[in-house]
């Protein structure tokens, strides 16, 4: 049940997208996400969707696996669609009792739906093809200028990579504890909301205890290896742009130009 969440989980494969520099992927993804929200119109979405499809195809991540990442947002998606459809004013197409559906509402709902789906798929593609370590590494690099105004860039990146690293571990732990309490006759499904929430206490307490224990162990292990923050720290595999990264940047620029042109003239 809990393993269905793909967010933040790496999909092992050997592809061009996997080999790209994480900075390229991060910048590319950001440009892509921003482009989804600035420009609108059916042709823009067609372009954006085909660009994403091309990337998914190149990444060799199975499409069914990508779609699984949409499951957690299914509810939000439905909710926005319905809200947009029912509460946008404009030319009335159809009306029944207190509900009216307008042409603008349908358009708005369609646009929002497309945006949300592409947004999640786009960012999922990045996390599926980039290990958390490389991703935070890229963030650290890209945020370097902030060091000038005394932002602890390295520490933030370290915290993020630890947090990301622990997501699958804690998920597995939750699964394990839930099973152990089920074996003791726990019931997480029946009853009203209050009863259900209460039934989670026997899961949450051991989970917190274990998280604290792990944090403590990790801090100890880091100190034992003389970790003292980012100052003067070198890297085992420093990030380096290669030819394919420039090609990728070039393609992102072409995509952006295309979207701008299409958004303006079509």
């Amino acid at each position: 049940m809990i393993r269905d969440i793909t967010l933040g989980q790496y999909y092992q494969a050997d592809s061009v997208i996997h080999r790209l520099d994480p900075r390229t992927k991060l910048v590319g993804t950001m440009v892509y996400l921003v482009s989804l929200f600035i420009f609108t119109g059916p042709w823009v979405f067609v372009t954006a969707a085909s660009f994403l499809l091309l990337c998914v195809f190149l990444s060799r991540v199975p499409f069914s696996y990508m779609l699984k990442g949409l499951k957690p947002i299914l509810f939000i998606l439905m909710f926005t669609l319905v809200i947009n459809m029912l509460f946008t004013k404009g030319t009335v197409l159809f009306s029944w009792w207190k509900f009216t559906i307008t042409e603008e509402g349908l358009k708005q709902a369609g646009a929002m739906g497309f945006r949300l789906v592409l947004l999640i798929l786009g960012s999922n593609l990045m996390t599926l093809t980039t290990t958390p370590t490389r991703l935070t590494n890229a963030m650290e690099h890209l945020m370097r200028p902030l060091k000038l105004i005394r932002v602890p860039v390295h520490e933030i990146a370290m915290m993020m990579s630890i947090a990301l690293r622990f997501i699958p571990i804690l998920l597995e732990e939750t699964d394990r504890i839930m099973k152990a309490q089920l074996a003791r006759g726990a019931d997480f499904e029946s009853g009203n909301l209050i009863k259900k929430t209460k039934s989670l206490v026997p899961v949450l307490i051991p989970l917190f205890i274990s998280a604290f224990r792990r944090a403590n162990d990790l801090a100890m292990a880091m100190e034992a290896r003389c970790y003292h923050g980012g100052k003067g720290r070198t890297q085992y595999k420093p990030l380096k742009y290669k030819g394919r990264d420039f090609v990728a940047y070039f393609m992102v620029i072409i995509y952006l130009a295309g979207v701008i042109l299409i958004g303006k003239f079509l």
Binding site: R176, K179, A180, A183, R184, G185, P202, P206, S210
Partner: peptide, 16 residues
């Protein structure tokens, strides 16, 4: 689960 009791590995981690 009452009739077939299962004690997990490292069961002390499920105390609460």
């Amino acid at each position: 689960r009452g009739k077939v009791g299962l004690v997990f590995q490292y069961p002390e981690y499920q105390l609460f």
